[in-house]
Structures are given as structure tokens and as C-alpha cells.
Design a protein around this nucleic acid. Structure first.
Lengths: 339, 339
DNA sequence: CTGAAAGCGCTTACAG
DNA sequence: CTGAAAGCGCTTACAG
């Protein structure tokens, strides 16, 4: 860490008080009626020695850190990385910085990281909650912390959140496959019962029921390693050869699924039509390109930051806000009409 | 922010001094010979009220924040996202947190973010430097800050850094194309003269010169929008139809290049063999799969954190360390032997 | 117009 | 075994 001059060093050097220096540094020179001469002299000296304010001291004194804690599931998932990048931009414009952490959807790690955020006195929390952390969220809320959930939420807790319409998106995707003439449509998902996964499952089921089609649901264990998951998907396809379409519940499932399809040399879409939730560069450039349910990343990021900063800056007066954004079905080659 | 009990609140409540509470909280009870009875009483009470230490005050007092500032080019680029994720894991294990920021390889933004890191009193800096920020790096160093550069460096400044052997990787990739029988090999890169790009160019040139093959270098402006870059690449291919192979200097160029190739309906590898620097999920799953020069992400992340933490914890005694890791050529379908 | 002083929540040298 | 007090670098109410 830099051995920086402090305000009091500057004051001493210039034979004035720290109060004066502080006022000038904070642009309150005019308001506090400090002479132009003194102001300029101080500013000049400050520039020469390269003074940099110690934000730690400032935060401690003011009770605000201008730091937001962002807990995502996995920063190396492009969906979360892009949302994080977009939020960072917006937050920076408002003078806030972001602490990112990845929870890997692990409950223990999530609890630990929330504690770290508390210790660091973040002004607000943006959390992609893992399962079973309701009590931690409640306790944050009870202590008047500013919290907004993202990607999934807890219906039993009154919080602000921003999520995509998972059920609607899944319905749209499944209906699209049916409209294209597919009848034996599988759904590949995880064992998670979190709202986003439950919603996607519900959308799938609803669409199928409406047309009296049979459901083929394959769940994989997200905690298994890559190979094991791909293996699971392979054997699912191998033992269900009458399937003519598959809908993957997330982009990482979609990617693993494509890997499985590639290994089995199944042809898309002639032998199997494919749709995935969440868009990805890979889906756009894959041959054939893959139809996807895209989440409006910029819009979600803006809502998240705006609502949270409002909460922080306007205090506890505001009601919690729940935002459900609409996904967009991007139709590509992998779901062209059944021959 | 939470209205938490402070150490002095606890001391007051329990009718003991803050010193005692602080010692107990920091596990120094035994060392300071505080009675087991008192220790347990304090620990019990602390647990009940849910005390969380204020790290801000701790940092201010101790002169250490246990925060690392990480400035990457772009957090939504999977290469940087994966490195960041790996570093986060390692740093957390050592009790450090990371502030990420994306510079977008912009000089002004980089300068601004370095200043933010200074204000936040980070204990160490991990920087993917943009061009023309030598003076800022020098000034950080002059002020005894702990700094390590990453992905690229400044030969004229004595710093620690971790980079991949760019020249060697590019040489390997180009030689591989030649070995497979390709003769008119293009290199698509940016206008950047940073070390990583210069190294890749040099590796390409060296390999071609050795076999007396002609160079076809296409530079694109990274600041242009996506469409413009793809358009540039399209017209480059269209007006150089004798090319039989192309080597993309980065993964984002590779992705844009594949988009261009797809639009032009050029067949890989029969009409054009393809290799890209940096691996990517997309390259693995593309049809045909794309040969890539992969950087050893885990290894680089470990070196970066280890060297930086050593510097921080062992003070200025250590020499700067320069680590150059070897890339790995992952051969896939896009560069199979020329027919 | 400007300054002396308190206080944010910690840690720790010093004293007993 | 335990406590009173200084100090990290700021901001700001209060006084003049």
C-alpha cells in the first residue's frame, strides 16, 4: 500500500487546518467561503504531491462505502459474466464499485460470502441465491440492509428482485417445437427446485399438457463433473431413441448436451431438434445454429442497479420492487420444421 | 448498511474493556492469558448478538485491506472470466478478496480504475495493462505498491508479470498449418502493438519466413462495432481467395472470423483451414471443431496470485518475477491435412 | 473566512 | 489477567 500524504500532512505543510483542506478537496470551498487564493494554493500543492484520498477512512466516517456486493452463481458462465459486466458499467457511472464473488450455487459458500460482504460494509447486496439461504436473506433484511435478488427468488420472502419470465420463456420454446411438428420433446434440467428451474419446468409441462403430449424429463446432477454429466445425457438419448426434440434448461446444459449429441453423431435437427434456455455465442455460431431463449441482459442489469441504488439513496421509504422481464425466443436452424 | 453492535458496545454491555473483547475476538485469549470463563462468556454473547467485525476500521488501523485489485481487459471474455474465477478461488483461500474491473483495453479507463484501486487502498494490483500507461505503472511501483502485470507487459519497466509464450504459441500454430500442407496462411490481428499481439505476429512471421512463404496480414480495429469488424474480415477473405488457411490472433477475433466464414459459406477446412489463439467452448463444439492455442489458465492464475501474495507478505525484499508459461496447441478438425 | 476537536470502529503498546 | 488511551485518515458541528 502506498505511503500517501494524508490531509493532515498537507495541512501541516501549508500551515492551515485540516478542515480547510478537507472542504477544498470536497469542492466545498465556495460554499464555505474559502478564499480563491487559498483554494488554488491547496489544489496546486495537492496535485504536486499526488494526493489520493483514503476511501477507507472516508467510508468509516461517513458510514457509506459506495461498494455493492454481487454474488453470482458463476462468473465464468457467460450469462453471469455479461450481466456482471453490464452492472459494473452502470454502477461505476453512479460512483459505486462492485465486489463480485461466485457462489457456485453452493449454500455454505453463499453464507460465507454474505458474511464477507457484511464485514466489508457493502452498501447493497445483489444476490443470486443458492438454496436454503432464506434465513440469511431474512437476517440481512431485518438489519435494514439493501438487498435485491436476481435470476431466482424466494416467494415466501418479501424482497426486491429481477428475474426473467422463466415459465413464459420455457412455454414459448416448447410451443415453438410443437408448432414445428415435433411430438416427443425431452426436457433436460437439474435437480434444483429453485424458482428459475421450477418455472422452466412448469412452462415445458404446461405447453405439453395443452397438446396432450408425453413428458420426457431428464435431470442431471450439476455437482457431477463434466464427463459424468455428458455421459448421463448420452445414455438418456441412447435409451430414448424415439425423441425428436430436446429443450435444455440452461446454457451450460445446452453446451454439455451439444457435446453429447456430437459424440452420438445425432444430426440436428433432422434426428433431433434442439432449443436451449439462455443464449450463448456458441449457439449462434454452431452448425447448425441453435434456437435459444435469450434473457435481456442490459435491461435486467439496469433494473437491478437502478432499484438497488434507489433503495440505498432514498432509504427505507421505498416498497420492494419485483421485476419480471420478458425473454426473447431466437429462432435458428436447430428447430426448423420437422420434415 | 447494518447497524451492528461494535466492540465497544459489547465491552460496555459486559462491563469489561474493549481490549479484552478485541483480544478474545482475535483468538489471542490464551496468549494474553484471559480466563476461560471470561472468554467463553464473551464468545457466547458475541454469537447471540451476531457481531460482525467492521473490516473497514480494521483495515484503516492495520494498514492492510486484504483486497486485491484486478484489472482485466474484459470480464465478459471467457478467457478473462475464467482466469478471474480461478484467481478468486485461490485468493479467497488466502483470506484475500478481489475487486474486478474491466478496462476494455482503454487507456483513460485504466488510469481511472488504478486511481480507484489506490483510493480503496488495495494491497496489491493485478493489471492487464492498456497501451500508454507506463507512467502510471511506474508511479505505482515508485510508491512501493505491489504490482503484477498479466497477459502483456512493458519490457522497459522492471515488474513482475505472468504471460504466455505468445511468440512460441503463434509459431507452433503457424508451423502446424504448414506441416498440414497449407501455403497461403493469413494472420488476422488488431492494430495493437502490445507485447501479446506483437509476440503472436512475430511467431507467425518467423514460421512463414523459415519456409519462404508469403505473409498475409489483416488488421482490424478493435474499437469498431461487431458488424463492422465482421464486414472487414468478410471483405478480406473475399478479396484474397487464394488463401487456404487463417490464424486468428485472439478468441474474439476467431469468433468474429467464424461468423464471417459462415456468412461467406466458406467450408472449413477444405476451402480454408482455421486456427485461433485462446481456446473457447465454441471452438471445441463448432462443426468442424477449431484448432486452438490454449493458455494454461489454472497455472497462470496460481502464479499470479502466489507471486503477488508473496510480495505483499514478504515485503519489498523479493526480486520481481517474470513467468512465461507454455501454451498448448489443441489440434482439431479445422486444420486437418490439406487434401 | 478559518480552526480545534470529536468520533467512525478497530488494534495494541503500555501500565498495573 | 485486565484496562485506559492513542491513533489509523477522514468529516463536520461548533466556535470564533
Amino acid at each position: 500500500m502506498r505511503k500517501q500524504p494524508s490531509i493532515s500532512d498537507i495541512a501541516k505543510k501549508l500551515n492551515i487546518s485540516v478542515t480547510t483542506v478537507s472542504f477544498i478537496l470536497n469542492g466545498k470551498a465556495e460554499e464555505k467561503r474559502i478564499s480563491k487564493t487559498l483554494t488554488n494554493k491547496v489544489l496546486k500543492y495537492v496535485g504536486e504531491v499526488g494526493y489520493v484520498a483514503n476511501h477507507l477512512a472516508k467510508s468509516l466516517r461517513m458510514g457509506k462505502t459506495h461498494i455493492l456486493g454481487l454474488l453470482v452463481e458463476d462468473i465464468s458462465n457467460p450469462f453471469f459474466a455479461r450481466v456482471a459486466g453490464a452492472m459494473e458499467d452502470i454502477a461505476n457511472k453512479h460512483g459505486y464499485r462492485i465486489f463480485y464473488c461466485s457462489s457456485n450455487n453452493d449454500t455454505a459458500k453463499t453464507k460465507e460470502l454474505i458474511k464477507v460482504f457484511e464485514e466489508r460494509q457493502v452498501d447493497g447486496y445483489i444476490i443470486t441465491p443458492a438454496e436454503n439461504i432464506q434465513d440469511n436473506i431474512r437476517s440481512l433484511l431485518a438489519n435494514k440492509n439493501k438487498v435485491i435478488l436476481f435470476d431466482r427468488f424466494f416467494p415466501e420472502i418479501d424482497t426486491s428482485y429481477v428475474v426473467v419470465d422463466n415459465e413464459g420463456g420455457a412455454y414459448l420454446a416448447t410451443k415453438h417445437l410443437m408448432d414445428q411438428g415435433y411430438k416427443n420433446i425431452a426436457f433436460v434440467t437439474t435437480y434444483s427446485s429453485q424458482t428459475q428451474m421450477a418455472g422452466r419446468l412448469k412452462g415445458y409441462e404446461k405447453a405439453l399438457k395443452k397438446n396432450n403430449l408425453e413428458q420426457y424429463i431428464k435431470r442431471v446432477d450439476f455437482n457431477e463433473n463434466n464427463e459424468a454429466i455428458i455421459g448421463e445425457i448420452c445414455s438418456f438419448f441412447s435409451s430414448n431413441t424415439h425423441l425428436d426434440a430436446v429443450f435444455f434448461a440452461t446454457n451450460y446444459l445446452g453446451i454439455k448436451g451439444l457435446e453429447a449429441i456430437k459424440r452420438l453423431r445425432i444430426r440436428i435437427p433432422t434426428e433431433l431438434a434442439v432449443v436451449s434456455f439462455d443464449d450463448h455465442d456458441l449457439f449462434r455460431l454452431h452448425s447448425p445454429s441453435i434456437t435459444a431463449v435469450a434473457q435481456p441482459i442490459q435491461k435486467m442489469s439496469e433494473s437491478l442497479i437502478t432499484i438497488l441504488l434507489d433503495k440505498i439513496e432514498k432509504g427505507g421509504l421505498l416498497q420492494n420492487q419485483q421485476v419480471v422481464v420478458s425473454p426473447e425466443l431466437i429462432i435458428r436452424e436447430s428447430s426448423s420444421a420437422k420434415a
